[in-house]
Design a protein around this nucleic acid. Structure first.
Lengths: 134, 134
DNA sequence: GTGAATAGACAGAGCGTCTGACTAATATGG
DNA sequence: CCATATTAGTCAGACGCTCTGTCTATTCAC
């Protein structure tokens, strides 16, 4: 399970590097994947990544400097800023999603459609008892 | 899948901390899990953990200082040393295994015996195409 | 036996994470 | 309405982990 999960993550990351984002680290990519359409606060990113706001802010600093995210003031809270993906980063996200879809297609070819569907169901069930913030 | 794998790892690590090994980091524990009965060379540990020998040696240094492993000369190769678990570390390994078994029992209670068996089979199949060093 | 490969150690650097303390803005209770 | 508590974010310092590069000692192969 570790092997398979890690393999999937590697496929996504390799797609980013292949797309020219060789100045991005796996940790930064993982954080970017947590940013939703419209922007997300640093503290929310930290919670989703199960880390401290300091760590998240540090990574956001780097991503901002590299041009993958931007900080804009939150109109509904004067203290907060929203971290938003730039157009360049959104294009990268599409690349990563495509790489994951490709890998999953290979899984299905190896496992068969029935077993693949069971796998998705089972993982969904497991999430009910293993997701620490569900 | 990430969530479930991470949950399993956390259960094992929490068991170590609960057993009093609060001076051990997750990274160190992960490396220790790669040491077989009779001892393993640093370069082998590095290969299994997919890292450099320098990183592995660094972690072994710390584990040795904390009394979890010891280095003994390899009788079959004068250049090499074998990293071996101490009795204390082996006892910890048993605790971790028990914690994982307990978690898997919970999974089976949630999924049912049939689906749990299928999960094990599927993960075994996935390893065939995702394990980078099989 | 000479050269290539291997096991390990040392030095230096960078990344990522943490704790703790701080400012500014918002929410709450009297 | 104001005092207090809470929350968003930043700054400073430290540690943990990993990497590249270089070195010595030993073994293997021809």
């Amino acid at each position: 399970m570790f092997v398979a999960a890690r393999s999937l993550e590697a496929r996504a990351y390799d797609a980013l590097v292949a797309a020219g984002a060789d100045d991005i680290t796996p940790t930064q990519a993982r954080l970017m994947a947590q940013i939703d359409q419209g922007g997300t606060r640093v503290v929310t990113l930290a919670a989703r990544a199960r880390t401290t706001k300091q760590s998240a802010a540090f990574l956001v600093d780097q991503l901002e400097r590299a041009g993958y995210v931007e900080r804009v003031a939150d109109p509904r809270d004067g203290r907060a800023k929203l971290v938003r993906l730039t157009a360049r980063a959104r294009a990268l996200g599409d690349r990563a999603d495509a790489a994951v879809a490709e890998a999953l297609a290979e899984w299905e070819a190896h496992l068969g459609a029935t077993r693949m569907r069971q796998l998705e169901e089972t993982m969904s069930m497991l999430r009910e008892i293993t997701d620490p913030w569900a």
